[in-house]
Design a protein around this nucleic acid. Structure first.
Lengths: 218, 218
DNA sequence: AAAAATATTAACAATTTTGTTAGAATTTTC
DNA sequence: GAAAATTCTAACAAAATTGTTAATATTTTT
């Protein structure tokens, strides 16, 4: 009757994504994936020869999503730099919020298998070079107008990513420490987003003596 | 001749720490640990009945170090709040820098095995309550003197930890993306530390209209 | 509807990984 | 230095996990 549409393959992919995101490559079990997908274990090997191949499929998809999401953030207009940055922060935060497990997934897999560097390198360096160069140009211009404090684009980007991503990465630990359930606490995330914007905006605002507080290490 | 000092047990512990920090519980192999420790595989099970027990030993030790390190940061004097905060940031950053793999280790293990929440909860909540309360009192006092902008202690703490910890957590990805070797790049870490202090100092500095830049989500 | 291609199953095989055991060697205690 | 406790070894066992295969069912093509 109904056309054959490989819905088992899709079910396996969906279950695999869950499993890999949750437990990482090493913790994931192909039997568990097959079971959650409602198919026999042999089917998994029929569609995806090995666990590694199945993982790679998920890894690429996931990386793609993350990078698309970040790209979207910086495809921006001609407003003042500070305002663009505030909007980028907000969009970036929301992208992460909608895919809160992706960052830890990526970090974990790259950390435990450096051979996956290559994928990351390709995906990111394709556009990161342009992005950073463009951003630095905008920064320099805004700084020369005294619109903002001068800053290195890479530095600013890492500020932004640290502030926006880390809370999601550390969420399980935070919940363990406080006993709170952050999924049910939308006020927490709204406050966090506002705080991150506040921090970066203050960072960019020109001051008379911008490095008065820097402490030099022994 | 020499007294018997369980140096095999120590060797196993050292190798286990390496293995677990590097690969996580799921990726670690007891055979590999025994091999790196230069002992037979059976010895591992002689001293530590199971992989789980060996892991727990390492996990506790590691958590202890991390918490001690952070405690040390806040056992501070009577200087102005901003200066104390700058010093705390610097010390905190250095503690992480000397144990750069601990944060990801903790995050990874708690994320993939929520039953380890209990350990974290005990260790942290023992002192975090006092810390936060004390900090909030200091903040309120400094704010009432117009020394700093008012801020929630929890928020400030998460700002600090995000900025200081995330660069170490994301290091492998950063290296994959840029092709740099950050271990050999002490200038990078000095700059990062300075940037984090700059950010927090600006966040604490009073302004006329401190929330002018907050963007509200749709 | 027959032939061809594809999807599915159940049972099995290979490997990896953790854990055990019985006994030998060594160290410590008395 | 003999007895007791302990450290250690080598071989083995059990379980889990990934991967295969041969036969069967279903779908698609002609």
């Amino acid at each position: 009757m109904t056309k054959h549409q490989n819905n088992k393959e899709q079910a396996i992919l969906a279950a695999a994504k869950e499993e890999f995101l949750d437990k990482g490559y090493d913790g994931a079990r192909t039997t568990s994936i097959a079971c959650n997908a409602g198919v026999t274990h042999a089917m998994l090997h029929y569609y995806f020869k090995t666990k590694e191949q199945l993982f790679e499929r998920i890894f690429h998809e996931t990386m793609g999503m993350l990078v698309e999401g970040i790209l979207e953030v910086f495809a921006k207009t001609e407003k003042p730099f500070k305002q663009r940055m505030a909007e980028a922060l907000e969009i970036h935060f929301e992208v992460i919020k909608q895919n809160p497990r992706l960052p830890l997934f990526m970090i974990r897999e790259v950390a435990s298998r450096p051979e996956r560097f290559a994928v990351i390198k390709n995906v990111i360096s394709t556009f990161a070079g342009n992005l950073l160069a463009t951003m630095q140009k905008d920064i320099n211009q805004a700084a020369s107008n005294d619109e903002i404090s001068p800053i290195d684009a890479t530095t600013l980007l890492l500020d932004m990513i640290s502030l926006n991503v880390f809370p999601f990465v550390v969420k399980p630990v935070y919940e363990a420490a406080t006993g709170l359930d952050l999924n049910a606490d939308s006020a927490f995330w709204e406050q966090r987003k506002a705080e991150n914007i506040e921090l970066i905006m203050r960072r960019l605002t020109p001051t008379q003596d911008s490095s008065q507080f820097i402490v030099h290490s022994s």
